[in-house]
Design a protein around this nucleic acid. Structure first.
Lengths: 160, 160
DNA sequence: AGTGTTGGTCAACCTGGTTGTCTATGTCAA
DNA sequence: TTGACATAGACAACCAGGTTGACCAACACT
């Protein structure tokens, strides 16, 4: 019996479930590779920093969160040794963020694992099908205020 | 130029972005229809209650969260008038949950809106394509501890 | 009875955000 | 040069939606 049309609520749960499944796997694997306390938000933040957000306010704008939230995130990153901060000599107010080797390691491994999991899915669906799926999802995301480059909305507690 | 293979991290963001897009729309629309303070978790919880979880411990098991968390959720539902509780005459410890008309209204409208949004997506993708997408997502979710019927993991702060 | 299980509650904590307020510094224009 | 405004950051309090841990009261079973 072709199950045909599911409910909209189920669709939502499918989307979120897939996301969490993917991300949980990445976090788990990251833990076994020497980053036991890494959270998805750390990855996103470090990526944003690497992409040019070199101060708290900058990061806040990039992630589309408040600067207070950005400051907290940075504090967490410093605590874990993923970044360091030092006062900008040219502007005493600013604290420039620099990613440590450990931080680089995190996003390098993170990216690799993300891609590994994606490859696994690709193996199951077929390359063309996965690309199509991504294209379709991009359509859903496209017509919205949501900005893939500013995944501040990606927060929540994604792992338990 | 066919953009072909995206990164695994992007895939994750696409999934989450689609979810939030869908859910945000539902919450927004719900607000305009007389449920301004409804949160996704409320909907999930009321659904679970309607499906038979008539006590806090029950709800906890069903949602796969702690009973304390379930109790908090129920308190929020009572506060908003979506459910009422009364002590079970047959077992003084239990507090039976009953969904109010307002609560029924919430999930009725919620379901309708979810389906409307899904229908909109269907209109864009085509019916067959959407079903295929759902089937593919179900595959990703299927091989995991994630249980669509126990969306406790769906929490996080899904809306900003 | 006595022992163990179950339902619920209190309290403290965590994460990742939010507002609101404040100071210190920088910038720019009159 | 000064005075107005913008910006960087920090502090404090709060919120949602979870978590642990400790507990008590009520039920169930032998």
């Amino acid at each position: 019996m072709a199950m045909s049309s599911r409910s909209g609520a189920d669709l939502a749960l499918l989307l979120l479930g897939s996301y969490r499944n993917l991300v949980d796997e990445v976090v788990r694997e990251l833990a076994t590779r020497g980053y036991p306390d890494a959270r998805p938000s750390h990855e996103y933040a470090i990526r944003a920093i690497r992409a040019g957000a070199d101060s708290a306010s900058d990061l806040a704008r990039r992630l589309a969160i408040t600067k207070q939230a950005a400051a907290k995130t940075i504090a967490a990153l410093v605590e874990r040794g993923y970044v360091t901060t030092e006062t900008d000599p040219a502007d005493i107010r600013r604290k420039n963020i620099r990613i440590t080797d450990h931080g680089i390691g995190l996003i390098t491994e993170g990216t690799a694992i993300f891609d590994e999991v994606r490859a696994r899915w690709e193996g199951r669906l077929g390359a063309a099908e996965l690309v199509e799926l991504e294209t379709q999802l991009a359509q859903f995301v496209g017509d919205s205020p949501i900005n893939l480059d500013a995944p501040g909305w990606a927060a929540g507690q994604e792992l338990r």
